[in-house]
């Protein structure tokens, strides 16, 4: 019992000492003001990264490729080591995989009963990309900008180009469902929802960007860097991941089911 108390006292002392030291140490001066940091978080105009040694791109694009690489590597490992060991009575890992795949598979089937094979694949991909991409920022992977500054790789969808990419891709998938089932009428039906790609894109962008801005703000000031990041950095990110995944996949499935519904001749 005494040993426990001693350990606790040492732990508290270490924390207090580090806190005091960090406050006393101060900062070496900001490379950029909070306005510049926020502006760059939105526009990615300053801190850019050379893509394949050529054109400079937003760090979010590097994040996007990294997320894809990680997802494909995980999928490959699961395909090689886990899938062949699947049993009729599933274990924990198998249950998680089946639940993840089954969630999007069933979402596609229930929202678009007539045509859902491709939709299921797309929903699974988009779901994995949005959720893992959002959680990716928690890893805090570093990259070097063209100016030589280190930068933490952001969530892919915090870049407007990535959000537009995913939003328009979802719209094209919905359009393909309309064409596959109803031909030109399906195109017309899809085009009626012309605001859909914009709303999808900017919903994603806004949601992810707001999280990013709040996190940027919190980390900008040392005084806010204690305890608070646990809530805004981790809990908000987890919530974003779940909510945005659900919203995007559900909207895509709903509209896909609507436009791919068989039109009845009167």
């Amino acid at each position: 019992m005494k040993q426990h108390k001693k350990g606790l006292a040492v732990w508290v002392l270490v924390i207090v000492a580090l806190l005091i030291a960090s406050i006393l140490a101060g900062t070496n001066g900001r490379a950029e003001s909070v306005q510049e940091a926020m502006r760059d978080a939105v526009l990615h105009g300053e801190n850019r990264i050379a893509f394949l040694g050529g054109k400079t791109v937003s760090p979010a694009l590097i994040s996007a490729f990294t997320v894809t690489g990680l997802l494909l590597l995980a999928a490959l490992l699961l395909r090689v080591f886990a899938v062949p060991r699947f049993k009729l009575r599933p274990g924990k890992l198998q249950l998680v995989l089946e639940e993840a795949v089954g969630l999007f598979h069933n979402m596609a089937k229930s929202n678009s009963p007539h045509l859902n094979k491709f939709l299921g694949v797309y929903l699974f991909t988009a779901g994995a990309y949005v959720s893992i991409g959002t959680l990716f920022e928690l890893l805090g992977l570093q990259a070097l900008t063209t100016k030589g500054h280190p930068i933490t790789l952001p969530a892919p969808l915090s870049d407007v180009n990535a959000a537009i990419g995913l939003g328009t891709m979802s719209y094209l998938v919905i359009l393909s469902g309309g064409i596959a089932k109803n031909g030109l009428k399906g195109v017309g039906k899809t085009l009626k929802e012309f605001s859909l790609p914009i709303s999808m894109s900017f919903r994603l962008f806004g949601a992810l960007l707001s999280g990013l801005l709040v996190t940027e703000l919190v980390y900008y000031y040392v005084s806010l860097s204690f305890v608070l990041p646990v809530v805004v950095g981790v809990l908000f990110t987890l919530l974003h991941a779940v909510i945005q995944t659900y919203v995007l996949t559900m909207l895509t499935a709903l509209y896909y089911g609507e436009v791919s519904e068989q039109l009845h001749k009167e």
Partner: peptide, 20 residues
């Protein structure tokens, strides 16, 4: 960059479809 994101998504969709 949008096209690069599309390409990225296409690679991810194909890979995830066949692998998982």
């Amino acid at each position: 960059q949008i096209l690069l994101h599309w390409m990225n998504l296409a690679i991810l969709a194909g890979g995830l479809y066949f692998l998982l």
